[in-house]
């Protein structure tokens, strides 16, 4: 248990601004790489993928926080809001690269959103995250009360949509998107494990 206690103590001391700073840094970094040839000869698609992948990873980290506390005892709950907001930040950048640098043509953007299933799914994921980021402040938490928790279960939907979006866009049978989807589904499945608190923890 010592390691877990150390981790919890350490987690309590990390300033929140540092989390935002560290995790926001890849955004300008990859943009710079794209500008200077560091992302290969087709930087637009590469940048789109980098941002999308970071967003998906953040969604997964966000989903891991509750099971980590429940089953391992590591408490990272205080980072959850930052993780969620950052996930939205990267989803927005991913979308922006697609709109502005990739497709460019307005008529085609609409056609793609309506006609291409993986884009429809990705767009739905973005829309689902909108109410979450808008209510990611203390005022909303107080105002919404128990409804806030319910609303933020939409994260589950967003993660599944994100995973499906990735699965859907690749050609052939590729391992990576399947791993992402499996991890997402696995983390969601942990929510279904019944709570055995009263039986397992003896009264002191």
């Amino acid at each position: 248990m010592a390691i877990v206690d150390h981790m919890n103590a350490w987690a309590r001391r990390v300033p929140m601004w540092l989390v935002y700073l560290i995790y926001a840094a890849p955004a300008p970094y990859f943009f710079y790489l794209g500008l200077t040839g560091g992302l290969g000869p087709e930087p637009i698609n590469a940048l789109e993928r980098e941002y999308g992948e970071i967003a998906l990873q953040l969604l997964i980290i966000g989903l891991a926080i509750t099971p980590l506390r429940r089953f391992v005892g590591v408490n990272l709950i205080r980072f959850r809001r930052a993780i969620g907001v950052l996930a939205f930040f990267y989803v927005s950048l991913h979308l922006l690269v697609w709109l502005v640098l990739d497709v460019q043509i307005l008529g085609q953007i609409w056609a793609d959103i309506l006609k291409r299933t993986y884009i429809t799914v990705g767009m739905a994921g973005f829309l689902v995250m909108l109410p979450l980021v808008l209510t990611s402040n203390n005022w909303s938490v107080r105002k919404l009360g128990p409804k806030w928790r319910k609303l933020h279960k939409l994260t589950y939907v967003a993660a599944i949509l994100g995973g499906a979006h990735y699965l859907w866009l690749v050609k052939g049978i590729q391992l990576e998107p399947m791993i992402y989807m499996a991890v997402i589904l696995g983390l969601l499945a942990t929510r279904a494990i019944p709570n055995r608190k009263s039986a397992a923890i003896p009264a002191r």
Binding site: F31, G34, L35, G37, P41, E42, P43, I44, L47, L101, V103, Q104, I105, Q108, A111, D112, K115, R116, T117, Y118, W168, L169
Partner: peptide, 22 residues
Amino acid sequence: VDHPRWSQATHRMIGGGLFASR
């Protein structure tokens, strides 16, 4: 004739950098 998952009406030339147009 579009690919079911994307349009084939336009393409991007490789090597045009971050602001290459279709």
